[in-house]
């Protein structure tokens, strides 16, 4: 499997989800911050997809089963706690992954070196909000704990080996868990218990198997481009 495509799909799909927040955030500063993160991810996606082919062909003309993103990033935004939990899980993963890639000598090293700085900001943003929500009010604590639990079953997939990638993803699982546990501890939250993947033997996002909301997300993202075959924009 093409590793750049898989990582590009992660970034593209999460950018698309975060783009849904624009104008709907709890405070104006978060409209700016979430769109900023979406823009960084979209930039990463464009670079990564272009290593494989035409970025728009790949983004707009593939079917759902041809996307290789992890299921975590396609999960709907939910409430602000769901979005922050998704951001926390994913940005800590991406920071470890890009950090390791940047140190290696693969073709993804230069991109990872640039992206790791952006991702450090994304991780900091997610961490700050995890602290505020976890140690804020009773309601925010409850919502954040629930969101962490709901998304937990999508975290195991992040660490499955990815063919062609210069980084051993399973080796990042322990440091990831340690960092997440550290942040949650400071936020007075508990690390979720229970399975970190679903029991479906068909596989998950990296194998092109996605969740129901993904099809609707793609339908919205792709319809205009597909309605005008061959047009340029």
């Amino acid at each position: 499997m093409n590793a750049a495509l898989a990582l590009g799909d992660d970034a593209l799909v999460l950018a698309q989800r975060l783009g849904e927040w624009a104008g709907n955030a709890p405070v104006l500063e978060e409209d700016v911050a979430l769109t900023n993160i979406a823009l960084d991810l979209l930039g990463q996606a464009r670079t990564l997809l272009s290593l494989t082919g035409d970025e728009d062909e790949l983004a707009f003309r593939r079917e759902a089963h041809e996307f290789r993103n992890v299921q975590l990033v396609e999960q709907p935004n939910g409430d602000f706690a769901d979005t922050i939990a998704r951001q926390l899980y994913f940005s800590v993963y991406q920071e470890l992954l890009y950090g390791a890639l940047a140190e290696g000598g693969s073709e993804l090293a230069p991109l990872a070196g640039k992206a790791v700085k952006e991702v450090a900001y994304h991780r900091d943003h997610a961490e700050q909000w995890t602290l505020r929500l976890g140690d804020g009010t009773e309601e925010s604590h409850r919502r954040m704990q629930r969101a962490l639990g709901t998304l937990w079953r999508f975290t195991g997939e992040l660490f499955e080996p990815l063919e062609g990638l210069a980084v051993e993803l399973p080796a990042l699982h322990a440091p990831w868990r340690e960092r997440i546990a550290g942040v949650l501890g400071r936020a007075t939250l508990e690390i979720p218990e229970g399975a970190d993947r679903t029991a479906w033997s068909a596989g998950a996002g990296r194998q092109g198997v996605h969740t129901e909301p993904f099809g609707r997300m793609l339908a919205e993202m792709q319809y205009l481009h597909r309605a005008h075959p061959g047009a340029s924009w």
Binding site: A22, V32, T35, G43, R46, F60
Partner: peptide, 30 residues
């Protein structure tokens, strides 16, 4: 003013246009 434009972020027909539109909506929030 973010609303009528954000209405098209998720449907922008190319990734370049999506990036430009997102940046614009972000500017308006700024």
């Amino acid at each position: 003013g973010m609303q009528p434009e954000a209405n098209w972020i998720t449907r922008a027909p190319s990734l370049r246009r999506k990036a430009i539109l997102m940046a614009k909506v972000q500017d308006e929030a700024g």
